[in-house]
Amino acid sequence: MSIIIRIPGSLKEWLDNQEEAVCQGNTIQECFNYLENNFPGFCDRIIDDKGEMSNVLIFLNGENIRNMEGLDTKVNPDDEIGIIPLAAGG
């Protein structure tokens, strides 16, 4: 199933100079794994050495996934994942 991921212009190098891409998976983590295959290094930018999302905020349809089930949050067709730098949330 197709999920759309959107990132701001300042992060577009993460997606080969695009601000959005289509990915697939049943959870956020699976979507990120799909993106890793197409944009190597993508997951390393999201998850730090300690396995935490310390530099970004991730949203599913606008809702922070920290308030859901984190990377295990389930996704549905046509859902939208958004990523912004952590500092932008303050």
Partner: peptide, 25 residues
């Protein structure tokens, strides 16, 4: 506007508490 990101004021306050990332950074 396309990228949909809702941040609660509570989350922002928590990021500015002692020891939390934005305060320390």
């Amino acid at each position: 506007v396309k990228l949909k990101a809702w941040v609660t004021e509570k989350e922002t306050m928590e990021m500015w508490m002692p020891g939390k990332p934005l305060m320390e950074r």
